[in-house]
Design a protein around this nucleic acid. Structure first.
Length: 474
DNA sequence: TTCGGAACTC
DNA sequence: GAGTTCCGAA
């Protein structure tokens, strides 16, 4: 009898950038989570499954990103094995077998073990990328070589513009798409496939630019991995924001990415491919969006020069702010002259991990609450009653939905635990202060935009007023 | 706890 | 090919 337990399991792709409701610590390209990237969900590969779990907030108590970029820890090996067994209709799956399957990836260089850390593995995303999109020779890119543990990744990552550029042999010049490459309508063939930078949000993980990427979760330090001059802290909101990096409004505890509308409006200002981060129909949304689509003059309001606000990457990033910014700017400007781009923080995860005291898997086993029906991020674990053959213990497999909503409510609503949202100082650092992560124009928006629509604009105006007053006083 | 060989299934 | 299962070794 065929196993139908997961035959209908189709996990929708998730956006490359996370909304506040999708609190996660890393943003990986959506294809990395797509079950269709493997030959059918029924034959989902383990590493895809791992990514799925890692993606889902409700499983952060079971498996979660931790430590270096791409590194994850299996907090509950038995639970992960159980979920994997459910997925594969292998009721007798256990961690020993699961780990054997993970070890199977060692030789394939998709995973490797983090020595000295229990149940901790690390994705080799350069390999993963190659598996999915071999056209990107990332394995040979200095950008990724430095991250690659299999070629002596302890070397300082090469974050030079050339290294970064080596990842993107072709940059799009117009239009937007929904996949890794925009399929050029006028230029079929290799030149018609336009790489979407936004399909690689993980490039912004910071890992390639960090000798030691920021640690993320509970027991790990949350300070920036290195010191920044002038007290710059990339993990604070607005650290990369516009106009000499003014802070976000007081209520904005998180970078703009966590606010859908600001995100959209910000992205919509950007030239392609950054504007393509927005869903179709939204990229041009707002009064400032259209210019980005047309490669127009957005980002240069008032004729101000292009300015970039980049963190000074240490180590190999001797190029510092302006250099890499110029490199990026040049690339962007090649397509959209005069477009200013700035860099903002990567996604900050609020995850329900060790910080929030979420339910243990055992506790959640009794719950079975289907949470957030609107979310597309639920892992569809279905009954194994249809599982075939050796499922003599199939009664052990039930539908167990994790009630992450409850834990999320605790995070967000329980005043004792979080007071709506934890203070920014209590937040884990965002993972990716990398320039490619999210780019926001640094120049002020056109005056047509009511300040009420943009707290950042209001701040900017306030800042200008302050500057004016200072000038008057001086 | 981690590893890898070997046989095996699908 | 991609695991799964079993097992002994470190």
């Amino acid at each position: 009898m065929d196993c139908n337990c997961v035959s209908d399991l189709l996990i929708p792709p998730v956006p490359a950038l996370w909304t506040p409701g999708q609190l996660t610590r890393f943003a990986f390209p959506d294809w990395a989570y797509k079950p269709e990237s493997s030959p059918g969900s029924r034959q989902i590969q383990l590493w895809h499954f791992i990514l799925e779990l890692l993606q889902k907030e409700e499983y952060h108590g079971v498996i979660a990103w931790q430590g270096d970029y791409g590194e994850f820890v299996i907090k509950d090996p038995d639970e992960v094995a159980r979920l994997w067994g459910i997925r594969k209709c292998k009721p007798h799956m256990n961690y020993d077998k699961l780990s054997r399957a993970l070890r199977y990836y060692y030789n394939k260089r998709i995973l490797h073990k983090t020595k000295g850390k229990r149940f901790t593995y690390k994705f080799n995303f350069s390999k993963v990328v190659l598996v999915n999109y071999p056209i990107l020779d990332m394995a040979n890119s200095p950008f990724f070589l430095a991250q690659n543990h299999f070629n002596g990744g302890s070397t300082t990552p090469d974050c030079s513009p050339e290294a970064i550029q080596s990842l993107f042999p072709r940059l799009p010049d117009s239009g937007r798409g929904t996949s890794l490459f925009d399929r050029g309508t006028t230029a079929p063939g290799p030149e018609g496939d336009k790489l979407r930078l936004d399909a690689f949000p993980f490039l912004s993980s910071g890992a390639p630019c960090y000798s030691k990427p920021p640690s993320l979760l509970g027991p790990y330090p949350r300070n920036p991995p290195f010191d920044y001059p002038w007290g710059f802290n990339p993990y604070l909101p607005g650290a990369f924001s516009l106009n000499n990096c003014p802070k976000l409004p007081p209520g904005s505890l998180y970078p703009s990415q966590f606010y859908p509308n600001p995100l959209q409006s910000s992205l919509s200002q950007l030239p392609h491919p950054f504007s393509s981060l927005l869903p179709p129909g939204e990229a041009g949304g707002g009064e400032r969006g259209a210019a980005g689509q047309t490669g127009g003059t957005n980002g240069t309001a008032g004729g101000q020069p292009v300015r970039l606000c980049l963190p000074p990457y240490p180590g190999s990033l001797s190029i510092g702010r302006t250099d890499i910014g110029a490199a990026l700017g040049e690339r962007v400007e090649a397509n959209t002259p005069g477009t200013g781009v700035g860099l903002t923080l990567g996604a900050v995860g609020l995850g329900a991990g060790t910080v929030t005291g979420q339910q243990s898997p055992t506790e959640r086993r009794g719950g079975g609450v289907k949470q957030d029906p609107e979310s597309d991020s639920d892992l569809e674990i279905t009954d194994l009653s249809d599982c075939s053959s050796d499922n003599e213990n199939e009664h052990e497999f039930g539908i167990r939905k994790e009630s992450s909503l409850a834990s999320r409510s605790q995070i967000l609503l329980d005043g004792k635990k979080g007071s709506v949202l934890p203070p920014i100082s209590a937040l884990p650092p965002p993972v990716s202060p990398h320039p490619l992560k999210s780019l926001i124009p640094l120049t002020p928006p056109p005056p047509s935009l009511p300040p009420s629509l943009s707290p950042a604009v209001a701040l900017h105006d306030r800042h200008r007023e302050t500057e004016t007053l200072k000038m008057i006083h001086s």
